[in-house]
Design a protein around this nucleic acid. Structure first.
Lengths: 347, 347
DNA sequence: TTTGACAGTGCAAGCGTTTACATTTTATTT
DNA sequence: AAATAAAATGTAAACGCTTGCACTGTCAAA
């Protein structure tokens, strides 16, 4: 029992370019052109096509388009986790800038695992990402090779280095943290401790810890004098780490935290032991997220322009895709925000 | 100058299934099977293929696969915004559950705009999403029609209704807020005000406001007695709205906020005017995000199990894809968390 | 009128997979 | 050893789109 081969009603599937072409009485090529390069098509035809498109609710199948055109106007981003407000914020700005340029964002998260990131890169490329946004420089050799071999434009955000394998947009975590530590020293603190996010596969965290140690050495302290606790990003972990530190025999007078979330946890712990901040203990953060202002007392921290970074990352990537050769990237300025959590060292 | 047509080196593009087949000395069909249904292939061959795949760093082109197989193991989610911690959190859990089942997540954000959401739905479907996670019930007729016409499984999260057009996993915003409002009344408050997120296209926000008004009526108040300010989600907006309310002639003794972020803003405003919370003013939130515990004083709020919701949403969707007919969805329980921001009404 | 030049449109190849169906190989039974 | 069944593999046709090339018609210049 033969059926007409064309125009068969594939029940329940999206309308195709054929459906549109047929309904509009033109060829698929014309439909495609009306959509992708409107000025190659005479207005009358174009309108007819557009109306049909609207009527049928047609949207080009992405996979098919990617295969035929070899580009997707899609940019992939791999962030460690969505739950960290700083990434969420930067990514939102990133996405907005892409949107303004008719690009779409594809997000994956790596949970701070190098191995997972390799896989995500492959996945995003297989999905047709034209370019990639990555966080920080710490990643496998394979990853860099892959990007290089396939000539995929990539930009690193949240870290900046002049001599980097890929252009970067970010700030110098080291100098920012050194400056903050100097300020802590100027307040007379000599017993300091560090609470940091895990530093493996996280160059931002590592740089910050390193900077504190360097500044401390300049201030005459030994590396061994400074307790360091590494713990994953969360208020409770910050509180636990601080609890540990505050029960040691030589209690620190200042705790320098790798980010605001850990710092807020430390604040919470101090409060629970009745230790007054900043009179008896100073605490600093990093990032300047909203939490930092709300904390009691408000946090002294390093302000990072996350939104700006996302926006610039997008711009840089789009420029790279436009073939504008080797752009160096862009360094952003951070600044210390002094609030009440940092005070003079107690006698 | 003729070149061999096969095995030509398309410079800089990802390895294809042909490359793998050739290198492994088998047909593309075998490679495909080794990857997708390993037990249809004899172990020896399978290993050979797998090794080649690893060596070449091959990942199947997603678009091509979607086109040929008509399913993608991809689920799309459209959330209002990533910047809202509650969605970020729920989505993370959603993603984790999908990952456990070899599914991938595709995220889009609608910025609370119905029109944009329609477009995003089309985009996600064009990109091959097998099913969709949506937030709340408020959306265009078109959207529902589209889902229905194409038989796309969808689940609504963050709201629950028995008689919904699609299964939902969430909680009853109205009864939760009514309960909270009752508690406020029991503390003796009679001059209350509302700060809410914009209620257009946001049934959660609308339900919460409605619930306050209902509870207030039950307590003998007129609708007109209760000032309502709608303002977008941000601490500063919450502060501004509270500032406005606190300068009115009949200053409220309790401000009920649609979410924790607005409530924290209100808290901030009160503090800046030297108004003591809860002695002179009570403030409540909704969601119970971390901010609520950190706030000073800590917020009385409604605890919502965001992670649980994300996880269940994923489960429900996967069940639907498995063809398990009309599942009703799942209602989650919320509970009020009493903290210090709610106190007895001042004389 | 003829001739180009050119704008608008159509034809059909190819993008990288999956999967019926066909074919070959292997194992089992006689 | 032959016959048969079952398992493994190969062949080739879709899937829905873009785009080089070919074609048709229009208009201006010769």
């Amino acid at each position: 029992m033969p059926r007409p081969p064309t125009n068969r009603r594939r029940s329940f599937s999206a309308p195709t370019i054929d459906d549109v072409a047929q309904a509009a009485g033109v060829s698929t090529a014309t439909v495609s052109r009306a959509l992708n390069s409107p000025d190659q098509v005479v207005p009358e035809t174009r309108n007819k096509v557009m109306q049909t498109v609207a009527k049928l609710g047609y949207a080009p199948n992405f996979g098919a388009r990617a295969m035929a055109a070899k580009r997707t106007n899609t940019i992939g981003a791999i962030i460690p986790t969505m739950e960290n407000a700083i990434f969420a914020r930067g990514l939102q700005a990133f996405q907005e800038e892409l949107g303004r340029n008719q690009f779409t964002l594809l997000v994956a998260s790596s949970s701070y695992q190098t191995k997972l990131e390799d896989e995500q890169i492959r996945t995003l490329l297989a999905r047709g990402a034209d370019a990639l946004l990555l966080i920080g420089f710490a990643r496998s050799q394979t990853a860099y090779q892959m990007l290089h071999a396939r000539q995929i434009p990539a930009v690193v955000a949240w870290s900046y280095r002049e001599d980097a394998p890929v252009p970067s947009v970010g700030f110098d975590n080291k100098s920012a943290m050194r400056e903050l530590t100097d300020a802590v020293f100027e307040h007379g603190h000599r017993r300091i401790a560090i609470i940091s996010a895990p530093t493996t596969d996280n160059d931002r965290a590592a740089d910050r810890v390193e900077a504190v140690l360097q500044a401390a050495r300049a201030g005459g302290l030994e590396r061994a004098d400074i307790p360091i606790i590494e713990t994953p990003y969360s208020i409770d972990n910050g509180a636990r780490a601080a609890t540990d530190l505050l029960h040691r025999v030589k209690r620190p007078t200042a705790i320098i935290c790798g980010n605001d979330v850990l710092a807020v946890g430390a604040l919470k712990a101090a409060k629970s032991f009745g230790i007054k901040v900043p009179q008896e203990l100073s605490i600093t953060g990093f990032d300047d997220i909203e939490l930092a202002q709300i904390a009691d007392p408000p946090l002294t921290t390093v302000h990072v322009p996350h939104r700006e970074m996302g926006r610039l990352g997008a711009k840089l990537l789009l420029e790279l895709l436009d073939g504008q050769g080797a752009l160096p990237g862009r360094e952003l300025k951070t600044r210390i925000v002094f609030r009440e959590s940092l005070g003079p060292a107690p006698k």
